[in-house]
């Protein structure tokens, strides 16, 4: 049986057995993105899946100011934080302004250590604190995919932040306080689906980067992991996604979460706005159903934290 309680055979497109023909077809629609064995895919195709699990790297496209026609993945998006405004970078394969000059090792070092090819620190608005948990193979595939997107020449912008928040060398101290490099370690006591969800949430999905409040130094407040933040990127509220009944998603079922990541619709029928809507539209909605189920399994299992997030809560 699947986590939703239906026999696995009913997931097969065109299967004749099922509670209704609709559900069989719906499942076919949902499962379609993972049709075909992993082994049949090229590195770039596998990388596209990694890209989707990272919400389509939406921060690297300036949708808010340039709309749907914004140069895809060419950066320039202003990300407002309590420390200043930082601009996302160009991750197209443009040789001068994008990743065109990166080697695969450069890319892995950037994602897992927060270091540029020249050895400079990246500002932690780039969530390498999460991406460090990603596997080498996923990052190699992601790099292969990014090499396939159309190159766009657009120079990266310096942050608009007061000193010392605009000094890269200070990030060394920040990293010492707030950054622990290392891959996600599977928990052998949990199911494969749970471990997959944990990897996706804590690695490529980088959920904690927005949904966890930050300390005075801008590090993640691990005591309130996933418990919501009033100061998410672009000044948005990021809700509590721990399974707390009163202030989190305790009253969401696994099916609710899977549906939400697929469509952006909450259990009450309201839709999602802001950056999360972009992550769903450009990434999470294209993830495989098992991956969304894994995320749901994991989120339902994290410790519930009572934390009401609203604009003036300071969290």
């Amino acid at each position: 049986m699947t986590p939703l309680g239906f026999p696995k055979q009913e997931r097969v497109a065109g299967g004749s057995i099922g509670p209704s023909a609709l559900f069989a077809l719906l499942l076919a629609w949902l499962v379609a993105p993972v049709a075909g064995a992993e082994g049949d895919l090229t590195a770039a195709q596998r990388g596209q899946r990694v890209f989707e699990s990272a919400g389509g790297c939406s921060c690297h496209t300036n949708y808010p100011e340039e709309g749907a026609d914004a140069p895809w993945l060419a950066g320039g998006r202003a990300l407002s934080t309590p420390f200043g405004v930082y601009y996302s970078s160009n991750i197209t394969p443009d040789p001068t302004t994008g990743l065109g000059g990166f080697t695969q090792d450069d890319f892995l070092r950037a994602m897992q250590e927060g270091l540029s090819p020249e050895g400079h620190n990246y500002f932690p608005i780039f969530p390498y604190t999460a991406f460090t948990k990603m596997s080498d193979s996923d990052l190699r595939d992601l790099f292969a995919f990014l090499k396939t997107v159309p190159p766009i020449e657009r120079s990266n912008q310096a942050p608009e932040a007061p000193a010392p928040f605009s000094w890269r060398w200070t990030i060394t101290a920040w990293k010492w306080l707030n950054f622990k490099p290392g891959r996600q370690v599977p928990d052998p006591t949990q199911s494969a689906a749970w471990n997959r969800g944990a990897y996706l949430v804590n690695g490529p999905g980088h959920c904690g980067e927005c949904h966890t409040p930050r300390t005075l130094t801008g590090g993640l407040d691990r005591g309130l992991w996933l418990a919501g933040s009033a100061e998410g990127p672009e000044g948005e509220l990021a809700p509590n996604i721990t399974p707390d009944d009163a202030t989190g998603i305790g009253d969401w079922s696994t099916a609710d979460l899977v549906w939400y990541l697929e469509t952006g619709f909450k259990p009450d029928g309201d839709d999602t706005q802001g950056l999360m809507a972009e992550l769903i539209e450009h990434g999470f909605s294209d993830m495989s159903r098992p991956d969304r189920e894994g995320i749901a399994d994991y989120l339902k299992s994290v410790p519930p934290i009572q934390n009401e997030v609203h604009r003036d809560s300071g969290q």
Binding site: W259, T263, F265, P267, D268, G269, D270, D271
Partner: peptide, 8 residues
């Protein structure tokens, strides 16, 4: 919203 929730 309620009808969207019903569809969902």
């Amino acid at each position: 919203g309620a009808d969207m929730a019903g569809i969902g």
